[in-house]
Design a protein around this nucleic acid. Sequence first.
DNA 1: ATATAACGTGTACAAGTGTACGCTGAAAAA
DNA 2: TTTTTCAGCGTACACTTGTACACGTTATAT
Lengths: 208, 208
Amino acid sequence: MTINRAQQKEKTRRQIIDAAFQLLSEERSFASLSLREVAREAGIAPTSFYRHFEDMEELGLSLVDEGGVILRQLMRKARQRINDRGSVIRISVETFMEFIHNSPHVFRLLLRERSGSSLAFRKAVSRELQYFVVELADYIQHQRGHSAEDARIQAEAMVILVFNACAEALDCKPSERVQLTEKAIVQLRYIARGAESFLRRRPNGGVK
Amino acid sequence: MTINRAQQKEKTRRQIIDAAFQLLSEERSFASLSLREVAREAGIAPTSFYRHFEDMEELGLSLVDEGGVILRQLMRKARQRINDRGSVIRISVETFMEFIHNSPHVFRLLLRERSGSSLAFRKAVSRELQYFVVELADYIQHQRGHSAEDARIQAEAMVILVFNACAEALDCKPSERVQLTEKAIVQLRYIARGAESFLRRRPNGGVK
DNA sequence: ATATAACGTGTACAAGTGTACGCTGAAAAA
DNA sequence: TTTTTCAGCGTACACTTGTACACGTTATAT
């Protein structure tokens, strides 16, 4: 029953990552976590931390990556659902809401670091969100026949509004989340309709 | 030349607040500031801090208040400009952009604490932003004749998008900010137009 | 003139921090 | 089998942190 060394290392690495997520509760930001604290929670000696990460910043970026993976899984699922039974807008919003219900810690991390004090973190989160934007823009572009640029502007606005609605939802009772969802849907519809109206269904209908 | 004691106290209080804003640079969040650090920057003994604030949280809330004051001044100026020469949307966006140009530290504080780890802070920032939302909603309601609720939904979306564009602008060279401004304006126009289209200029034109 | 109140100081301490260093035991390589 | 590698540990050290406490100093109230 001798276990692979690499496997053991990976396992410990996971413990560290899980410990960090565990500590990222409602009241703690990543920046407020100390290396020793994470090590304690992970059940290892403080100095062992360095066998896995250069410093806390590197751990943080790994957490963001982790969040990105979950986000992309979510995106695939959403795409699936949209193909099954229409309404991009409703499904996008509801998928996000599902996300914060299933992985509030992960969402909180992305939310906070998006406007956090580390440029590296901000960029990392922004990059993850861009996947969603690109995906949505693509859909808009082909479905509605807008130019790539117009589609992107709409998609960015939509992602921001959905993301923001989720942030609000975090501070709410689940019962109030329904209203937030509906509000976000209305807002996204305004954007879609407004763009439609401005661009008049022509591929390059704008000012250019 | 004996100075009033209360005046002296107020002056020291200001030193503390200014010191804190000073430390809130691009790379530091409020949560990462220590009491001693702020005291050092303010040029007072660490223990003197307590003569003015119960703890760091209280200082933080004062900073948010301070930001709120600036925000409201801004709002008044924007209202003025709108009355002078139309275009709510362009003027709102440009006023915000002016804000981050003039007081980047203040904006950064509001931006970060809006999704920070303290509920008290989040609520405080949210309250400040609501002033803007209410103002804008009021304008939309009377100018466009939408219901209070519809107007609010639009106003919230607009404020979020503008706020977000400013956040992006913070990481940009001033030359790129123009494009962000234009993008935000387009997004806001989509919302206005979309709402118009849905609600058809009637006070209660929605589903209701 | 005297007493009071209170802003600001310096000292002190326990607690927590990041991380350098050397060691151990066991898995992997030779 | 012997040697090498390396994840994990414990100790140690130099900091920084919040804050309790006792003490000046001086504007204000009596």
